[in-house]
Design a protein around this nucleic acid. Structure first.
Length: 426
DNA sequence: TCTGGGGTCCTAGGACCC
DNA sequence: TCTGGGGTCCTAGGACCC
């Protein structure tokens, strides 16, 4: 006999930190509340966070900084390079507070978390409590959207950002839900990106509500199964649950744009070595080994003559031993490098990650060799963790590092560096 | 002159096999 | 001149997210 499982809809909340990087800067420099503020991406390239005043000036998300520099100066906007140590630490504080207030939480990104509100009575009241508590304990303002699915919670949070800060469409009347989704441009629906937004608006689909009402076959044909999932979620059929456990990463990348163009192979080798060191530290901290490494170099991607070269090389034995990784990365680099090109960016990606417990002994390895390498890495990671980044490193990554990225306007690392702590004045 | 970084998933197409 | 069909696996490219 077959029993039909009736799944009662459960409320999902999305908590989204407002203008997160800007808010982090403001926590530590309250006088910034009186100014418009932007935070730049790595290499001071793009604008990746904007205060509300800057949004009102018409500066779009992800805009190249140089294109808006004048407008920014004219309006006395305070500008910061990104300070990921600070943002990472603040993010951790926010998530810790959330964890204390709800049983089930999925950290979705540095500034967002999905919460399961299953079994919670008085949802609106609780949402306000969450919002107020996070603000009080961390200084970070958040918006909260609540719906029957993640996609609806996301949609509600878009509305929340523009209104009081909390928007709940869970168990809302059909009329109210329609009204809310009509307010949301289709490009702001979670899962609809730039390309598909253009495609949809060209076909007369302007809002989330228009999208929701399209027949399945049409969606499947035009947006594939991904689009279909989004549409079902808009209709209140949950396809994505709040996940408290995180699947292990399949790849770890380390890539950077250069502060200025690089031509020499030796400089690229240094940069590649240095990125490889970072990625290797990362996979060791997650107890993983890599089966392959991809190296790439590229010239200015905004020029018509732009060149991109990449190569993937597999390891005979999966490894997380930095010298092995660097050696392989350099083999790849030497094969793809061309003279007389101005490179703007390079990077490596460690692929085919597996738990380090799975590695088998290589043909020419002895247990003792492997043990020694492992001890060396553990020792280096330990020293670097304790005494600050890369006190111990490898000669391969160079000393001068002429390729280093620009980061000219970084705020102090208030929370993670003893030397840069906030000093309280009596 | 100056345009980020780090991920995931899906799809199409080729290689290969029986 | 005629020259199958279907499965799997892998990879590259594209779309999406933050």
């Amino acid at each position: 006999m077959h029993e039909l499982e009736i799944v009662k809809p459960q409320a999902v909340a999305l908590v989204d930190c407002n203008n997160f990087y800007v808010s982090c800067e403001r926590v530590f420099q309250p006088k910034l509340e009186r100014y418009p503020v932007v935070v730049l991406s790595n290499n001071d390239g793009c604008i990746v966070a904007r205060s509300n005043e800057v949004k009102r000036l018409g500066v779009p998300m992800g805009a190249p900084y140089y294109q808006y520099k004048r407008l920014i100066e004219e309006n006395n906007v305070k500008v910061f390079s990104s300070n990921y140590e600070l943002y990472g630490d603040m993010s951790h504080r926010v998530m810790t507070v959330l964890h204390r207030l709800v049983p089930e939480l999925e950290i979705y990104s540095i500034d967002e978390a999905f919460l399961s509100l299953a079994g919670i009575n008085g949802i609106d009241k609780h949402a306000w409590h969450i919002k107020n508590t996070v603000k009080q304990w961390t200084g970070i303002p958040v918006s909260i959207g609540i719906g029957a699915t993640k996609t609806l919670a996301k949609a509600a949070s878009e509305i929340a950002k523009k209104s009081s800060g909390v928007c709940n469409v869970f168990q809302a009347s059909e009329a109210r839900l329609t009204q809310t989704l009509q307010k949301l441009p289709v490009k702001d629906v979670w899962g609809v990106g730039r390309k598909n937004a253009v495609k949809l608006t060209n076909k007369g689909i302007q809002t989330a509500n228009d999208l929701k009402n399209k027949p399945d076959e049409w969606i499947r044909e035009n947006l594939t199964v991904m689009g279909l999932r989004t549409v079902w979620e808009l209709r209140g059929i949950s396809c994505l649950s709040v996940e408290e456990t995180y699947p292990p990463k399949k790849a770890v990348a380390s890539t950077r744009s250069f502060g200025k163009a690089v031509e020499r192979l030796e400089d690229l080798e240094e940069a590649i070595a240095s990125y490889t060191i970072r990625a290797a530290e990362k996979i060791r901290s997650q107890h993983m080994v890599a089966s392959a490494i991809q190296v790439f170099i590229r010239t200015n991607r905004f020029k018509p003559s732009s060149q991109y070269n990449a190569m993937t090389l597999a390891f005979e034995e999966p490894t997380n031993y930095t010298p092995n990784l660097i050696q392989k990365a350099h083999v790849g680099l030497n094969r793809i490098y061309k003279k007389n090109l101005k490179y703007h960016k390079a990077g490596i990606i460690l692929l085919g990650l597996r738990p380090d417990t799975e590695i088998q002994l290589g043909l020419f390895d002895t247990d003792e060799d492997r043990m020694r390498r492992q001890q060396l890495m553990t020792m280096m990671d330990g020293v670097n963790r304790k005494h600050g980044k890369r006190i111990l490193s490898f000669a391969a990554c160079g000393v001068q590092q002429p390729w280093q990225m620009k980061r000219q306007k970084r705020s102090p690392r208030y929370t993670t560096k003893w030397q840069e702590l906030v000093v309280a004045k009596a």
